[in-house]
């Protein structure tokens, strides 16, 4: 079952930017694209854990700020020659607020 949790206003995240969500176990990052889509991923690149929230967002991709891996915001998959995947979480915008499905986060924590 989904547990939609209000994270904050959409405007708190810059277009083509991201903010960190402190979460149990691991920080997450919520991204906003130029056309106001939002995505939530674990805030760590599969390669050496670079904080993806600090990367450059282009289209629905983000580039790892430390080593330039390019990660899909939609699937969490590394692009190109790189192999790896970041966990993604359901997130949506309603009434200008960002809602994150936190059920799997707490499950992860429990597991």
């Amino acid at each position: 079952m989904s547990t939609w949790t209000d994270i904050g206003p959409l405007d708190a995240v810059r277009r083509r930017g991201a903010r960190i969500i402190k979460a149990p176990g691991q920080d997450l990052a919520v991204f906003r694209t130029i056309d106001d889509q939002v995505f939530a991923l674990v805030n760590a690149c599969p390669y050496r854990q670079g904080p993806l929230s600090e990367g450059i967002v282009h289209g629905t991709l983000v580039t790892d700020p430390l080593y330039n891996w390019v990660i899909s915001l939609e699937t969490g998959e590394a692009q190109g020659a790189d192999e790896g995947r970041v966990d993604t979480f359901p997130v949506k915008v309603e009434g200008g607020r960002i809602l994150l499905d936190t059920s799997s986060i707490y499950q992860r924590q429990a597991a």
């Binding site: 949790t5 904050g8 708190a12 903010r19 960190i20 979460a23 997450l28 960002i98 707490y106």
Partner: peptide, 14 residues
Amino acid sequence: ADQYEPIANLVLEA
């Protein structure tokens, strides 16, 4: 300065 803070803290909530 707010941009440097996390947007939310689910650890507290948990």
